[in-house]
Write a protein that binds this DNA or RNA. Structure first.
Lengths: 124, 124, 124, 124
DNA sequence: GTGGTCTAGACCACA
DNA sequence: GTGGTCTAGACCACA
């Protein structure tokens, strides 16, 4: 599971984790039954505190996205499936992007070109 | 001056103000000598605490973006001018958008179309 | 607001807080709009860590029992009202009491008498 | 030996086992010399891990409640006998019940009636 | 090994 | 003053 945690962004770390797992589930890259990496594993890999990861996992459990198995790794809930309206989950970011472009007085063609370039650049 | 303050977004209020004024200056919509609305005015209009606005204004002053004039409204500094590389100020949002699209497993064409639609929708 | 926090009980501290506030709301002793004592206040009074209280408050917020007001005390949500079926909230404790009595081979009359005595003893 | 193990209750599993065996002994339903079901048997029947049952048994042994016999099932110790003051073992639950009733603003008569009903309902 | 609870303490955002 | 986030570290319950 590939998370991109940014410790200098304003977004709380636990929120970044929740948002990204939610997207990976909506996108079908995490499927019901899949196990999440352990709290300690995520904490170690991203050099953050286990409690922070644990908080994210608890929130996801409360949300019905993942489920606990006593003494075993958490896994994606059966009810959490690929979402067909997942374009909506992009909406807030789109709003922010367009607002920023307007304030910077960047014209539409330039914005689209920049998005296009970035899409190619991050081609995974 | 049109600010779009989102009290439920995770981004701190004072940061939203600073970011947006910075962009309006980079985009040339606020020019050297232009006056800022008063702290009270902004606070009232967006229903936030004056201390929060004041903090944003102080940060902008420290950054050399605006300057205080005794007994008069703050204004945009002479040195704060339209920025030619302002597309870079879009970069963080572009990164986040593309990461989110990848995690949602949305293909490039669909992302571009969504950006395009949003650009038209928010035409101003 | 009177909470009875038992640090040596097996029940997690944050759970005790949530359970008791929930009951006080169901019982009408905390009403919509009422302010909760601050996190620090509860922590100080019961000699527990503020983070523990904060966790309880966050859970109650997620549950729609209380709401945050930025920079101000949390308060009981409008939707959280006196519950007519509140006897059901006693059910788990009743089950446990009766199970224990059975295992201890205490007859019904003696149990009822003990409950009665305790009810009078804690009269307040 | 009838144990009622509740995996979703907050009480630790090993504690539920210890508490209930202790009560069955105090109540005389388990008498000195009686054999306990094996660790595996209890684990299987309640779908919990044998190590958890084993931990409970070890605690009971340390407490002088049960004793190991090489190659044979554990059994109730000679010293563990029916307790005349066993009503006291109900005290903590009574306290919790009455506290909950008070917080729910349920009057004494209603509480007694609920206890009475539950006593009849669980008649065995 | 897994996740959970709690503490002590630093620092942030907002009113 | 209010609540929120994060860390470092101890210790528990369960598989």
């Amino acid at each position: 599971m590939l998370l991109d945690i940014n410790t200098s962004s304003g977004t709380p770390l636990y929120r970044q984790i929740v948002d990204q797992v939610r997207r990976l589930v909506s996108g079908g890259q995490l499927q019901p039954g899949d196990e999440l990496p352990s709290v300690r594993e995520v904490a170690r890999r991203h050099a953050i505190n286990p409690m922070t990861v644990s908080k994210a996992y608890s929130l996801m459990e409360a949300e019905g996205l993942v489920e606990r198995q006593r003494g075993k790794p958490m896994r994606i809930c059966a009810g959490a499936v690929r979402d067909d309206n997942r374009i909506e989950q992009l909406d807030e970011l789109l709003e922010r992007l367009v607002l920023a472009a307007r304030q910077l007085d960047i014209d539409d063609a330039t914005v689209l070109e920049a998005v296009s370039r970035k899409l190619k650049g991050l081609k995974p």
